[in-house]
Amino acid sequence: MIPHILLTGAGFSYNWGGYLASEAFEYLLGVTENDEDLRKVLWADQNRGFEATLARLRKEFEENYTPQVEQDLRNMTTAVRRMFGDMWLAFSQSKFDEAFEDPRLGVIRFLTRFDAIFTLNQDTLLEAHYLPVVTDTDFAKNTYQGPRNVGAYRPGLVPAMDTLTFGSLAARIPLFRASDDFSPTRNLQPYYKLHGSIDIKDGRDMMLILGGNKEADIGKHPLLESYHAQFEWWLNMPMARLMVIGYSFADAHINRVIFNAIEKRGLKLFLVGPDGAKTIDSNPALPLNPRQQVKDAIVGASRRSIRNTLSGRDMVELMKIERFFHDGRMAITRIPAL
Results as ranks from 00 to 15, higher is better:
His253Gly: 10
Met243Ser: 15
Ile262Cys: 02
Ile200Leu: 09
Met161Phe: 05
Lys220Gly: 05
Gln189Glu: 10
Gly211Asp: 11
Gly266Asp: 11
Leu223Trp: 07
Asn260Cys: 14
Ala240Tyr: 14
Thr165Cys: 11
Gly211Lys: 10
Leu169Met: 02
Ser168Pro: 00
Met237Gln: 14
Glu263Ala: 11
Ile262Gly: 06
Ala240Trp: 15
Thr165Ser: 15
His195Arg: 14
Val272Ala: 13
Leu210Phe: 08
Pro238Met: 02
Ala171Leu: 08
Leu267Pro: 09
Ala170Cys: 05
Thr185Glu: 11
Gly273Val: 04
Leu157Arg: 04
Thr185Pro: 06
Asp275Tyr: 12
Ile198Glu: 03
Lys193Thr: 06
Met243Val: 12
Val272Gly: 13
Phe249Pro: 14
Lys193Asp: 01
Ile258Cys: 02
Thr279Asp: 12
Lys268Asp: 08
Pro174Tyr: 06
Leu169Trp: 00
Leu157Gly: 00
His221Tyr: 03
Leu169Val: 01
Ile280Thr: 06
Leu267Cys: 13
Pro190Asn: 02
Lys193Gly: 13
Asp199His: 13
Leu208Ser: 07
Ala240His: 10
Leu157Thr: 02
Arg204Leu: 01
Asp205Val: 05
Gly156Pro: 00
Ala240Arg: 05
Arg186Glu: 10
Leu169Glu: 08
Met207Arg: 11
Leu157Trp: 00
Pro174Asp: 10
Leu208Ile: 07
Ser197Phe: 07
Gly203Asn: 08
Ala229His: 03
Glu225Tyr: 10
His253Thr: 13
Asp275Arg: 15
Lys201Ala: 05
Ala178Lys: 07
Arg172Asp: 08
Gly156Val: 01
Val257Glu: 04
Gly167Asp: 06
Gln230Ser: 15
Asp205Trp: 07
Ile262Asp: 00
Ile280Lys: 12
Ala240Ser: 11
Arg186Val: 06
Leu194Lys: 14
Ala216Glu: 04
Ser179Cys: 09
Asn260Met: 10
Tyr192Glu: 06
Gly211Gln: 06
Arg256Met: 03
Ile245Phe: 03
Asp202Asn: 13
Arg177Phe: 01
Ala171Trp: 01
Ile245Pro: 15
Gly203Ser: 01
Met243Lys: 10
Ala240Met: 13
Pro190Gln: 06
Asn213Gly: 02
Glu225Phe: 00
Gly167Gln: 08
Pro238Lys: 09
Ser226Phe: 12
Pro174Phe: 09
Ala252Cys: 01
Arg256Pro: 06
Ala229Val: 11
Gly167Tyr: 05
Asn255Glu: 06
Val158Trp: 01
Pro174Ala: 08
Met237Leu: 12
Asn255Trp: 07
Asp181Ala: 02
Pro184Glu: 11
Glu263Gln: 13
Ile198Lys: 05
Arg172Tyr: 01
Ile218Glu: 10
Val244Ile: 14
Pro222Lys: 06
His253Asn: 14
Met239His: 14
Leu210Val: 01
Pro155Met: 13
Ser226Tyr: 15
Pro190His: 03
Leu164Ala: 09
Ile258Pro: 14
Pro184Met: 12
Met206Trp: 00
Ile254Cys: 07
Ile173Trp: 01
Met207Asp: 10
Tyr247His: 12
Ala250Cys: 08
Val257Pro: 11
Ala216Trp: 02
Ala171Glu: 00
Ile262Tyr: 05
Leu267Ile: 13
Phe182Arg: 07
Thr279Val: 14
Glu225Arg: 04
Gly167Phe: 02
Lys264Pro: 15
Tyr247Ser: 13
Ile218His: 03
His228Ile: 07
Leu235Ser: 09
Thr185Trp: 02
Met161Cys: 06
Leu223Asn: 09
Asp162Ser: 04
Ala170Gly: 13
Tyr192Ser: 08
Ser248Asn: 14
Lys264Ile: 15
Ser197Trp: 10
